[in-house]
Structures are given as C-alpha cells and as structure tokens.
Write a protein that binds this DNA or RNA. Structure first.
Lengths: 157, 157
DNA sequence: TATTGTTATACTCTATAACTATA
DNA sequence: TATAGTTATAGAGTATAACAATA
C-alpha cells in the first residue's frame, strides 16, 4: 500500500475525540441531539412537518387533550410559541382549540379526523427513521438509553 | 387532609408522559438536551461563556491545535459561525489564530496563557454542574449513558 | 390579584451564497 | 479547479414584556 507519503496534517477530526470535552455529557448530548433532530426533521419533511408541530399533533392524537399551558411545559417552549404552533396545525385542519367549559380561559387542543390520519402517516415515518438513525445501537441498548434519557428529561417535573 | 375538592383538571403534565411521543428517542433527547444546555450555560455565565465558545476553548486548551474547518465539523456548525466564535475568544485574549506554515490558507487555533487559566476555571464549574445536573443517575449509569451517546454522536465521522 | 392565551418586538441562532487568498 | 477562511444577509428560532378575558 502506498501510504508512505501521507500528509503531515491529520485530515480527520479523530484526534479531537480524545480530548476532555468529547467526554462531557453536555457536549455529547448536544451533538447526538443535533444529529437526531436533523434526521427526524428530514423524515417528517414529506408530510410538511417538523419535530415540534409533530409532537403537538401526537399529544392531540393521543387524546391527551393538553392545554396550551401544558404543551408549553412539556415541550419546554414559551407559551407564545405554542400559539403559532397550534395556529399552523389548525390552518391545516389537523387540530382544533376547544374552550374548556369549566375554565373559559383555557383552550384544550383536540385532534380532527384529518389530523389523526396525518399523524398515523407521520408516525410511521418517524418510527422508520428511529430504527435507521439509532441502528448503531442494538435493541437492548436502545431500551437502556430510553430509560436513562427519560429519567433525565423528567427531572424537574 | 382537605383534598376532597381537588380540581377536575389535573394541573400537572404527568399524564402526557404516558403518550407515545414521550417514548420517542428524538423527543427525549431534545428535552434532556435542552435541560442540560440551559444548566451548562448557566454554570458558565459567571465566566461570560456559553457552551459553544467553551468547547472551542477546551479544544485549544487541550493543545489539539484544531483548524477552523475541524472545529466546524466537530461542533456541527457552519464555518462562518466559527469565525465569530474565535473572534470573540481572540478579543478576550484567550486564543490566537496561528497560520499553518505548510498551508497558508489554514488557521490553527492555539490557547494563550490567560486562555488556559480561564479554561481551568470554567472547566471546574462545568464539572461541578455535571455532577449536580446528572445526579439523578448514579456513577455507573452515567458511564453507560456516556458510552451510548458517544457512539451515537460519532456515527457520521 | 393571578392566570390563560395572545400580540408585538427585539434578540440570537442558523443557513446560504459570494468573495479572497491560497493550493 | 478546489479549499480555508471571511463577509453579508435572510430566515428561523428564542425570550420578554404587555395586553384582554377570565378566574
């Protein structure tokens, strides 16, 4: 093999993975999340969705009847961002705002028939994506990761 | 205890955690990352740093002598964003751009004495933060999580 | 008085393309 | 021709404060 005249400069970033930061959970999580988010958004692009509106649709489709305030907490977004998110899904005819009769300040987000169908399609894509994107881990490892992330993600409830 | 007249509406978001999305790795990662990022940024705020510039400083302080291109790949940021990041650290006197004599197009990022001191202070804060923020997991669980995230984060190298 | 949803706005981050200097 | 770094800019995402309706 002719690798005698290899460049002085290592062309890859391999050696950067031997540094301290590369072991920081905050760094690893940020990088893994950026990759996962990009892949998930790509998977949802054909349905004209991204992860955020998909999550709202999913909660509505699960008949969880979330209030906008609850969505704000759960998705860790400002209430003002939830407005735009729901406006968009409502414009597509996928969800509706139902005023709570017991507290007329509150809107509950409900799914429509079309919304349920859209969610079913989107969910199939997301699940296929997850299998592919996380295929570097085996079934048991994924279960372990899910459990650990779940505990971290739920910490400040 | 007087909890007989409790409200009809569950005030917490607990029930949302029983839905399908709450098990999606993409969702869990996004949420766990958002929490971790906010905590890490808060930990670094006293040093006038955020996670991004801290990561650049860390790689320079590790004497990895990264090029701007390598930083771009490693941090998953556009090359144009690296410019501003390094400008800022350079203005503080913490890093310098050293032109590579072998390829004068290339800048290598090197740490200064002051930069090394700043990094030492910042690193102590970050490590303290990590211990606190991830304290819901025990030592072994953290090691497992780090290993799994590392494999995911390194996938497309 | 406090809270839900809403609007407006400013700020940060991100993505893209074009430019320069070197190779 | 191709690549490293830079600049400019538009778009997306985020954070904050103030407001109306209701509690």
């Amino acid at each position: 093999m002719d690798d005698t005249a290899v460049s002085t400069r290592e062309s890859s970033t391999g050696r950067l993975w031997d540094t301290q930061v590369a072991g920081d959970l905050a760094f690893l999580m940020a990088r893994a999340n950026a990759m996962s988010l990009a892949a998930a958004n790509a998977a949802l692009a054909d349905e004209g969705l991204k992860v955020r509106p998909y999550s709202v649709l999913a909660l509505a489709a699960a008949d969880a009847r979330p209030t906008q305030r609850e969505l704000s907490e759960f998705l860790r977004l400002d209430p003002s961002q939830i407005v735009a998110l729901i406006d968009d899904l409502q414009d597509r005819g996928w969800v509706t705002r139902e005023p709570d009769p017991q507290d007329r300040r509150v809107n509950v987000v409900a799914v429509t028939k079309a919304g349920r169908a859209a969610f079913t399609r989107a969910r199939a894509r997301v699940q296929r994506h997850q299998r592919e994107h996380f295929s570097v881990l085996d079934h048991d490892e994924i279960a372990v990761l899910r459990g650990l992330l779940r505990r971290l993600a739920r910490v400040d409830e």
